[in-house]
Design a protein around this nucleic acid. Structure first.
Lengths: 185, 185
DNA sequence: CTGAACTTTCAGAAATTACTGAAAGTTTAT
DNA sequence: ATAAACTTTCAGTAATTTCTGAAAGTTCAG
């Protein structure tokens, strides 16, 4: 893997941002390297290009595979494993989004459900439970909606995003368009 | 601040999740405590309830204020400062979302813009630049759209979210509803 | 001005997270 | 069965992040 200055800057930056996106520096760098490479790349090449140990590379690749951001690519006749991006940019973004939802929202939803089953012991608890309930509902809406958006598929999602302020106008008209079942006001 | 079992579980959980949401354990705990409390709460009470040092509490509160998740609340006749949530649950969620966008997306957009100005030196760089361009466009759409959604305001946003699969049907009809300017196909 | 009641800062300590590299494991060819 | 070519694991170490608590800073009443 030839590390041109352009690629190096991008890789370094994705490393720095890695931790903000849910993984660590090396994992971010490995991902960038694989995405930007125009050909499948081996674990050893990655370790060399990034100056990290072979062991660390192995762990990073394992993590990226668990996020489905990277997949193996067998080259006929080659003993070692090569890696390529798990899909196009849009797919990768989706997977990061989805995976983060699982890690950031789902466990909280689960706890909230449990806490809401208890009978509040006093005024303070009752108030706290109200708040927790609000949080629960909000997270539920967000989860359901993100699911809905994913079901739309890339094309429609893109149409929707590009619609911009048209969304607002469309909402104003929605009752005229859709049957009552979906009216929520 | 009375730490009932219910409140304790919630606070502990938000502490654990804190790091996934962009801040650290104590910051998460402090936030949960303030949100769930039914009355303004002082820094000393927070430190006591969470068993953390007064200094750490001060830093945590400073961070929460920078996120605008918590604000000061002056009690007449009291010397010390009290704290309350920066808004209702919906507002808080929005602020977290917004703040994270600033930290997670904006710096990358900025770097990508720069890298895309360079003339690619060879085939490999040209390919990498194509990928970077795709990433840039995607992030730009996401940013613009999240801006758009915020402009809708809570009510419409909620309507849109509750619309569920209706969104798909609506998109199919959009060309009949909106003038050509917003057609993107 | 003084001191009481509070808050903030920050150097060092503690806790957590990430990384290395050697050893163990796996796969394939002969 | 053996060995070469690779990958994974994991104990120990290094780097980073978070926390403490003492000192410095602020504000206000008298």
């Amino acid at each position: 893997m030839k590390m041109t200055p352009l690629i190096t800057s991008a890789v370094m930056h994705f490393g720095e941002m890695g931790s903000r996106w849910g993984f660590n520096r090396t994992v971010g760098q490995i991902l960038a390297l694989i995405v930007l490479a125009d050909e499948p790349i081996s674990a050893q090449e990655i370790a060399d290009a990034l100056n990290i140990s072979r062991g660390n590379t192995s762990m990073g690749l394992k993590e990226l595979q668990s996020w489905r951001l990277v997949k193996q690519h067998l080259v006929p006749g080659e003993r070692k494993e090569f890696f390529i991006a798990g899909g196009d940019i849009w797919t990768l973004a989706n997977r990061v989004f989805e995976e983060r939802r699982k890690r950031e929202i789902d466990p909280t939803m689960s706890l909230l459900r449990d806490l809401l089953l208890d009978t509040p012991a006093n005024k303070t608890e009752a108030n706290a439970q109200d708040k927790l309930n609000e949080i629960h509902d909000l997270l539920e809406s967000v989860t359901a909606w993100s699911q809905e958006l994913q079901n739309l598929g890339p094309d429609k999602l893109n149409t929707l995003m590009k619609l911009g302020s048209g969304v607002g106008r469309m909402l104003e008209l929605k009752d005229k368009i859709l049957p009552g079942k979906n009216s929520v006001n």
